[in-house]
Amino acid sequence: MGEKVIEINGLTKKYGNFTAVNQLNLTIEKGQVYGILGPNGSGKTTTLGMILDVINPTSGSYTWFETKPFENHRNNIGAILEQPIFYPDLSAYRNLEISCAIKKAPLERIDLVLERVGLLDRKNSKFSAYSLGMKQRLALASALLGDPDVLVLDEPTNGLDPQGINQMRELIKGIASEGKTIIISSHLLDEIQKTCTHVAILRKGTLLKAGEIGELIKTPTSFEINAISRDALLEGLKNCPFVLSHEERGDHILVVCETNTTGSQLNEYLASKQVYLSHLNKFKISLEEEFLNIVNN
């Protein structure tokens, strides 16, 4: 195992009879881009609020950098929780000056972080004149002022158009490439898959599954195939060593193979049995399908 950034043990939050987060156990290591994934109401924001010392847990604990208090590491953790809040009539630069005073960060960092998020040329524009995507990027700039080792981002692409989502995604990937640890909550399955190295899936406050993205979606590979002779094709599939199952679906046959099986392997095997494919189309389960399988079971 690598260096632990945060270890969460039995973290629970209850509001009366309602349990928002239930006995959450999670370990996040240095350099990981860790996605907290779940539908609305799954406890993502509550979890982030607790580990950022904004919400008091009902029970359980969390440990930053192997020492308990978040307060000891406040300057080493940059966060965007909920919607970014800035003074609307002040410029981006002036808003970040105020953030620097609060975070005790040097003013020299302002131009650096504005350039990092692509807003240096708009630093004198009022916050109220910014688009939603620019506001989100300014919030990210504010989180980066103290040059933290860890970023905690709550729904950073929420409400953005496709261009804004792509800009934020590339920013996060670029920051992660510098060795920073990033924790992201999102209900956008595609964004977690494209951005994160690891993911934890929550449903109604309960952890359903966690691990590396590649391992989480490590499922059989499926192919839709056909041949001129359907009987010969079915016969050829019977003893194929890497075919797990097959079934007829209309004009084609759906073949489920072992993980990482390629179309070339399947085609070459069948050709060795004198079965020549007229149709071959690969299917691979997506994170969304895996997510739905997990939350519905």
Score class of each variant (00 low, 15 high):
Glu3His: 15
Asn9Leu: 01
Thr12Ala: 08
Lys14Ile: 02
Tyr15His: 12
Asn17His: 11
Thr19Val: 15
Ala20Lys: 01
Asn22Val: 00
Gln23Ala: 09
Glu29Tyr: 06
Val33Arg: 04
Gly35Ser: 06
Gly38Pro: 04
Gly41His: 03
Thr45Asn: 04
Thr46Asn: 08
Thr47Cys: 10
Leu48Glu: 03
Gly49Thr: 00
Asp53His: 02
Asn56Glu: 09
Ser61Phe: 00
Asn72Ser: 15
Ala79Trp: 00
Ile80Met: 15
Leu81Glu: 04
Phe86Ile: 02
Pro88Phe: 07
Ser91Val: 01
Ala92Thr: 07
Tyr93His: 13
Arg94Gly: 03
Arg94Pro: 00
Cys100Tyr: 05
Cys100Thr: 04
Lys104Ala: 01
Leu112Ser: 10
Val113Glu: 11
Val113Ala: 05
Arg116Ser: 11
Gly118Trp: 13
Leu119Phe: 09
Leu120Trp: 11
Lys123Ile: 01
Ser125Val: 06
Ser125Leu: 08
Lys126Tyr: 06
Lys135Ala: 07
Arg137Tyr: 00
Val150Ile: 13
Val152Pro: 05
Val152Arg: 05
Leu153Arg: 13
Gly159Trp: 12
Leu160Gly: 13
Arg169Ser: 06
Ile175Ser: 05
Glu178Ser: 09
Gly179Leu: 08
Ser185Ile: 02
Leu188Asp: 15
Leu188Asn: 15
Glu191Asn: 01
Glu191His: 01
Ile192Trp: 08
Ile201Thr: 01
Gly205Pro: 06
Gly211Trp: 02
Gly214Val: 05
Glu215Ser: 12
Leu216Cys: 02
Lys218Ala: 12
Ser222Gln: 13
Asp231Val: 07
Asp231Asn: 08
Leu233Asp: 13
Leu234Ala: 07
Leu237Val: 07
Cys240Asn: 14
Phe242Ile: 11
Arg249Leu: 13
Arg249Val: 12
His252Gln: 14
Val255Leu: 08
Val256Asn: 10
Gln265Ala: 09
Leu266Ile: 03
Asn267Glu: 15
Lys273Gln: 10
Tyr276His: 09
Tyr276Asp: 04
Leu280Ser: 02
Asn281Ala: 14
Phe283Lys: 14
Ile285Ala: 14
Glu289Arg: 03
Leu292Thr: 00
Asn296Tyr: 00
